[in-house]
Design a protein around this nucleic acid. Structure first.
Length: 316
DNA sequence: AAATTATGCAACCGCGCGTGC
DNA sequence: GGCACGCGCGGTTGCATAATT
């Protein structure tokens, strides 16, 4: 968990703090206050930059820091605050006595983001996800709601089964979807809200599939890719292996900065759509959004062309 | 048991804002 | 207005530890 101590170009120590350094810093601040952070290291006799001292004090040594596991109430408060404030960690932290912005940010990145995804919510907007994985999970929910328990070896079969249980409105959409699949016309499916493909998560033969260069990025492409897959796995595999329609349907939350006020109309549309959720119809409204998405994304096309003869998913 | 992969989090980095000259 | 400085914030990284293969 600690970095290896090192010395930077200017001779300042970097990396983890020793107990001795902590003691020197705490003693100095208790006696004199921190004053100018830039001047503090020399006055206190520390071979650190002021910034490092400030960080160590505010995130770790401050006496009023509450350490330990976040309570359910704290987690819920953070989610609610994030919905209205976005990544304003310092502002969020000001509502949680004893918690630091850094700690909250870490909690968000390691736990809460996944939690929202599992609830079918976009962790950025807090709105229901309308990406391909959410659509797939909705398909599964419809199957489960209709008590369809057959196995499907490819998506066309799944759609065909759904057709037998759909009303006229959805039937047209299912036909459209069927045509798309048959034509491998997948270039518009990807709407950009998920960085990496998920299909191979529900399709074991795709396990060795490698993400194309243009979809990779960040500090470590492979870890990044794996992390993305992990997110998708949490959402996708759990929904597919164990479809639970009543719990996994998206629920409405308060508006986020991304939903409103900037995009109020869009947000209203979302609310209308999801508040009237009907397992026998609504999932296909989002297909409409999907298919009208302008984003040019050849990835899915290539992907489907490469794997179109492979089975897609099965329902236990 | 060893190797590999995932997770959690402290610490770092760079940017932008506010302030004073 | 323009510059320098100090500070705080949000994003990112490194790495110890845990979990899995």
């Amino acid at each position: 968990m600690m970095r290896t101590p090192s010395i930077d170009e200017s001779g300042m120590k970097k990396g983890p703090w020793s107990q001795e350094e902590d003691k020197v810093l705490v003693d100095y601040i208790q006696k004199h206050g921190h004053g100018s952070w830039r001047a503090l290291p020399q006055l206190a006799g520390l071979n650190r930059c002021g910034k490092s001292c400030r960080l160590r004090w505010t995130n770790y040594l401050r006496p009023d820091i509450k350490r330990g596991k976040f309570s359910d109430e704290e987690e819920q408060l953070i989610i609610n605050l994030h919905a209205s404030l976005g990544n304003k960690w310092a502002t969020i932290a000001s509502h949680l006595p004893g918690r630091t912005d850094n700690e909250i940010k870490n909690l968000w990145n390691t736990h809460l983001k996944k939690k929202l995804l599992q609830m079918g919510l976009d962790p950025v907007t807090h709105c229901p996800r309308s990406d391909h994985m959410n659509i797939l999970s909705n398909l599964q929910q419809i199957l489960a709601a209709a008590n369809i328990v057959s196995s499907f070896t490819n998506p066309c079969d799944m759609i065909h089964a759904l057709m037998l249980h759909s009303d006229a409105t959805n039937l047209a959409k299912l036909h459209l979807l069927q045509n798309m699949l048959q034509n491998n016309n997948f270039q518009n499916i990807y709407n950009g809200s998920v960085a990496f493909p998920s299909l191979h998560q529900i399709q074991p033969s795709f396990q060795n599939f490698e993400a194309p260069q243009h979809l990779s990025g960040g500090r470590d492409d492979i870890s990044n890719y794996r992390e993305c897959l992990k997110f998708d796995e949490q959402l996708g595999l759990s929904n597919i292996a164990d479809p639970t329609p009543s719990n996994s349907l998206p629920k409405l939350v308060s508006a986020s900065p991304e939903c409103s006020p900037v995009n109020q109309e869009e947000n209203m549309a979302n609310h209308k759509e999801w508040s009237n959720f009907d397992p026998s119809s609504t999932a296909f409204e989002t297909w409409g959004e999907f298919m009208s998405e302008d984003t040019s994304e050849t990835y899915w096309k290539d992907f489907m062309e490469q794997h179109s003869n492979q089975p897609w998913s099965t329902v236990p």
